[in-house]
Amino acid sequence: MGDTSHVVSDADLRTAFLGTDFGGADHRKLIEIGVLKTACGYGSGHTLTQIMIGLKLIGANATVLKRGRDLMRAAYHELMLNGG
């Protein structure tokens, strides 16, 4: 996946996940996949959904906001151009 740190900084990501327990999961990948799932009409868990809302990636009504679209463009840019 592409670099999305210009959309959501490492500091913002650390703050957003502070106090949560996602084990050893990659928090950046969690939000990248979470926003993609939202765009496709799927849901994520409550905590991840609240984190994405807090980061202004998705709205409370499960719509992907501009910042979320920017994140998806950056994350999946190579896939969209080359199919893999």
Rank of each mutant, 00 (worst) to 15 (best):
M80I: 04
T20D: 07
I53A: 01
M72R: 13
G45D: 15
R69L: 13
T15I: 09
T15H: 04
T38E: 05
K37I: 02
T38W: 01
D21Q: 13
K56V: 01
A74N: 09
Q50L: 04
L55S: 00
T20R: 08
L57A: 00
D21W: 15
G19F: 03
K37M: 08
T63K: 15
T47W: 03
G45H: 03
A75D: 09
I51C: 00
G68H: 02
T49S: 08
F22W: 14
F22A: 08
K37L: 15
I53K: 10
I53F: 00
D21S: 09
I53Y: 05
S44G: 06
T49V: 05
G34H: 05
K29S: 13
K66H: 13
H77K: 14
Q50K: 13
L57V: 02
M52P: 01
G59W: 02
A25M: 13
T15V: 14
V35Y: 00
L48H: 08
L65R: 07
H46C: 00
T49Q: 09
H46M: 03
T15W: 00
A75V: 11
K66F: 04
I51L: 00
A25R: 10
K66R: 15
V35W: 02
M80N: 11
I53S: 05
I58A: 01
G23C: 10
Q50H: 14
D26A: 07
S44D: 06
L71Y: 06
D21C: 06
A25F: 11
K29D: 15
D26K: 07
A62F: 05
H46Y: 06
Y76P: 03
R73E: 09
I33D: 03
T63M: 10
A75S: 10
A74W: 06
G23D: 09
R73V: 08
T38M: 12
M72V: 12
L79G: 03
C40R: 12
H77R: 13
R28N: 06
T20M: 09
H77F: 14
I53T: 03
A74H: 12
G59A: 11
H46N: 09
G59T: 08
T63G: 04
T20Y: 10
T15D: 12
L55I: 00
K66E: 14
H46P: 07
F22R: 12
I58N: 02
C40I: 04
Y42P: 00
Y42R: 15
A62N: 11
G59Q: 02
Y42A: 15
R69N: 12
R28M: 11
L55D: 02
I53N: 05
